[in-house]
Design a protein around this nucleic acid. Structure first.
Lengths: 135, 135
DNA sequence: GTACAGGTTTACGTTAACGTTAATTACATT
DNA sequence: AATGTAATTAACGTTAACGTAAACCTGTAC
């Protein structure tokens, strides 16, 4: 259970398949300073910590964070892990996202009822047409 | 209470201010075929129906619809609103959108709980920091 | 020894939804 | 007449997150 027990390595294609993305994306994340895998010759070699990073990137994306936002979080964590400042920045960012999501929920509910209306009117008019009413 | 009782007109700048967008955006929506205000000379003049359209466009955007998607919805509603074929197509379309919305609702709820998790962990670690635990 | 399945870099292309000048017009005040 | 405010068209610029060649290396399989 030590830190040393997972020395599995991954090629870029393996990670790409595992997370269902393209190698291009992974290289792009590196280009943006989000990862820095080691090399064997000119080939990229990914360790478990890199895999974890990638997982975090993708989760950030799912949460609606841009790559730039993910990077700021990473940078904060790298230079000052578990500092109060970093944690509070994280809280602030999640709070923002939460606000966006709340707005979206509201909008969706409004649109749903609007769809109900439209649908109801459609059905009514269809019924009239079937009855031969050309109104 | 007839259809004729709202003949208020709006200039592009008024609408822009009201909805907190730029005139450029409004012109862009028109360029994309989403609105077609009348003119006085070369100036655009917006009636209440145009204002409603704009409101719908913005709501669609907040919901994550592209302008192209909003346009297809508009086109469907605009062309032959009373033919049986169009009505049935419309019903099918709304049903599809409804399914998409249900999916979005699910996604958002999942994201919310994920954010809850992240936030909870942050708060825990912050609490430990305050207690002086450097773990 | 050659074909293939992976990897590499470089660099231009793509899409959406505007932003940003520029150059012009028109009406209202001062 | 000059200034200010709001409008117009036309057209090139921008951002994010990759996609898509092109041209190359390289280890293994047959």
């Amino acid at each position: 259970m030590s830190k040393y027990d997972d020395e599995t390595t991954y090629a870029i294609g393996e990670l790409a398949r595992e997370f269902d993305i393209t190698p291009r994306s992974i290289r792009f994340y590196e280009e943006q300073g989000l990862m820095s895998p080691s090399r064997t010759g000119q080939n990229r070699v990914y360790l478990n910590k890199d895999r974890v990073r990638l997982k975090l990137i993708l989760r950030g994306k799912r949460l609606g964070f841009s790559l730039a936002e993910v990077k700021t979080l990473f940078d904060m964590y790298d230079t000052n892990p578990n500092s109060a400042i970093q944690l509070e920045a994280m809280l602030e960012m999640t709070e923002q996202k939460r606000a966006v999501l709340r707005q979206q929920l509201e909008d969706i509910q409004m649109l749903m009822t609007e769809l109900d209306d439209v649908e109801a009117r459609c059905r009514e008019e269809l019924a009239e047409l079937k009855r031969g009413n050309i109104a």
